[in-house]
Design a protein around this nucleic acid. Structure first.
Lengths: 143, 143
DNA sequence: TTAAGTGCAAAATCTTTGCAAATGT
DNA sequence: ACATTTGCAAAGATTTTGCACTTAA
């Protein structure tokens, strides 16, 4: 699917500034989620740290980006599938957090339904697998 | 199962200090994971903030405690089941993070096996359900 | 006795807030 | 023109580091 930052901003009635467009462009470059520190490194020259915080927050609130916390408590961001909305994030797919390169992948694997104990009402589910990703597996074999 | 802080420390050849014992006691009080800020609040008079950081890190490294990150990137701690070791945490049960009281429960629900895409080797799995816990559900009904 | 652990001070980060200047509609 | 957004400065919070003093083995 093609990502068009300008359209996304229009759809959510957000003003389109060059900073907001850049953030979406950068995150859309990869299907892999990107961490906030990585984003800062890449955009630091163009966008102020504080502005980045604010843009990411707005995008998450609006359901444009999807935030995944990694094992260190660092925020990682990926573009939400179109079914996400301001009311509810549909994150029912499995994430894969590579322990070698620390990238987070959004896998095309659905989280199976699980029965909750009596009294517990689950609204959403987040499943993360930790291990070695495709690329890092290849690197190991090559050496 | 009965938790004996002194024995746990011995088993992992850690010196037993009153601070280390207190941390284990406090965490063992509940099956629910406790957040680091909550621990600070409860133990702040007895244990220095920095010491708490250091003790929690050691406990996680040794496989004594099990760290669960909540949606805010805050660390929560629970006693590991006996099968955890320094080499590997067995966290294959489902966590339940209450969006109302923000407690994290370790549920007696096992994460179903999921097939990873080709090239991805999962070593461990972390599944967290978000929703309303038993206690908060009851509170709503009462009012 | 002596290696390890603790507390305090301080540095390094990370995150939020306030406000004047710049920008988009 | 006017409401929003941005960047900078600064406050607040979290986490790490260094070192002298204390404690457990």
């Amino acid at each position: 699917m093609k990502i068009n930052p300008v359209n996304i901003l229009k759809e959510h009635s957000l003003k389109h500034t060059k900073q907001r467009v850049r953030v979406l462009e950068e995150i859309a470059l990869d299907t892999v989620a990107i961490s906030q520190p990585e984003l800062e490194k890449k955009l630091g020259k163009e966008i102020d740290r504080v502005t980045l915080y604010r843009i990411l927050n707005i995008y998450e609130d609006k359901g444009i980006l999807h935030r995944i916390m990694d094992m260190n408590g660092t925020a990682n961001y990926a573009i939400c599938s179109s079914s996400c909305s301001e009311e509810h994030h549909h994150d029912e797919h499995v994430h894969f957090n590579c322990t070698s390169c620390s990238k987070i992948y959004c896998l095309d694997v659905t989280v199976p339904k699980m029965v909750m104990p009596h009294g517990f009402k689950a609204v959403s589910m987040n499943t993360t697998a930790y291990g070695i990703c495709e690329k890092c597996n290849l690197l190991v074999k090559e050496n």
